[in-house]
């Protein structure tokens, strides 16, 4: 081969790589843009300020759960308990503030700490009791937390929260819902945490290659406990936003929300095998789900059909990812 030919071939390979990088980085975003374009054509009401703000608000609860979920998934784990933790957190907050009439700040503190405490318990079950997989420990706490949420008020809902508690889920800054501003702040925080701190890098390392992580002296147990505690804390925070939206707490709140959160993380390009996934991908994953639901609602598509579509999108998103990885391995 002449030198020129080699050079052009190298250039082509370079170009191909660059293209792949772009696709892998922006794949979910491209999907979101395509989806938005299609829905804009189909429904004149879709791309209006009012509706975009609806989407922002509707996506916020799942976005908060999903960013918490990203951490366990990055460590090749999972947290099935977040939906139930959300319910338990808000029921406890309701008991403290509405039933017992205590200060709303104390209620917020209770809400967040119940989530975090159960998250911590998930971490302990996994690392100290050595349950074989977080699927099991969090499946257990999922049922325990839901059970307690039902027991504490005998399954009755609690309504009439003080304004301070409703603020996050209810208020707007201009046209923008406060809940979505919260999402942005939280995501920036997680981005910095995962990319700029030692613990953040350890989280990726544990998921990418646990053996290497262990050998390099990372305290894996400690990192895992932090991961599940954060995930539980985020469930409490998402609950706080939900209470603000509907001014009530009910024990069946957040039923199967863990699955939406997992879907958002996976659609956002994270790998179940751990070590791969980004904060912004997760945000786009959460937005894709919210946009799909909202768009299908605007088109008056039945809820049953919506489930089918979201299922298909999850499979399609992961399939694209699998193909990409297969190709990059060959190259």
């Amino acid at each position: 081969m002449s030198q020129v030919a080699v050079q052009t071939k190298n250039e082509a390979v370079e170009k191909n790589r660059a293209f792949k990088r772009i696709i892998s980085k922006f794949g979910p975003l491209i999907g979101l843009i395509l989806l938005t374009a299609v829905l804009t054509i189909l429904s004149p009401k879709f791309l209006t300020i009012n509706n975009v703000m609806n989407i922002a608000r509707q996506s916020s609860i799942n976005a908060l759960l999903a960013i918490g979920m990203l951490l366990p998934i990055l460590t090749a784990g999972i947290d099935l308990s977040v939906g139930s933790l959300l319910a338990l957190s808000i029921m406890m907050m309701g008991i403290v503030t509405v039933n017992m009439g205590m200060h709303p700040l104390l209620g917020i503190l209770v809400c967040l700490s119940v989530g975090a405490a159960f998250g911590w318990l998930n971490g302990i079950l996994l690392t100290k009791l050595r349950l074989p997989h977080p699927f099991i420990s969090t499946l257990g706490t999922m049922n325990i937390a839901r059970g307690i949420a039902l027991i504490v008020t005998g399954a009755a809902p609690i309504a009439g929260f003080p304004y301070m508690i409703q603020f996050l889920g209810r208020e707007f800054v201009g046209p923008i819902p406060v809940s979505f501003l919260l999402v942005i702040v939280v995501y920036v925080f997680f981005h910095i945490f995962l990319t700029r701190t030692q613990t953040g890098r350890y989280i990726y390392a544990i998921g990418g290659n646990p053996e290497a992580a262990r050998l390099s002296g990372i305290n894996i147990d400690r990192v895992l406990i932090i991961v599940y505690t954060i995930s539980g804390f985020m469930a409490g925070l998402a609950g706080l936003v939900m209470v603000g939206r509907v001014n009530s707490a009910f024990p069946l709140a957040g039923l199967s929300y863990e699955l939406d959160a997992i879907a958002a993380v996976i659609i956002g390009g994270a790998s179940f095998l751990g070590g791969v996934g980004t904060v912004w991908g997760t945000l786009i994953g959460a937005l894709i789900i919210a946009v799909l639901r909202n768009g299908l609602n605007l088109l008056n598509v039945s809820a049953d059909f919506q489930m089918t579509v979201i299922g298909a999108v999850i499979i399609a998103a992961v399939f694209v990812d699998v193909l990409r990885q297969r190709k990059s391995k060959k190259a």
């Binding site: 609806n54 609860i61 509907v246 039923l255 909202n294 809820a303």
Partner: peptide, 12 residues
């Protein structure tokens, strides 16, 4: 049981 989905549907 999908309480929030109903709230979203009302909004939409």
């Amino acid at each position: 049981s999908e309480v929030m989905q109903q709230v979203n549907m009302i909004e939409d």
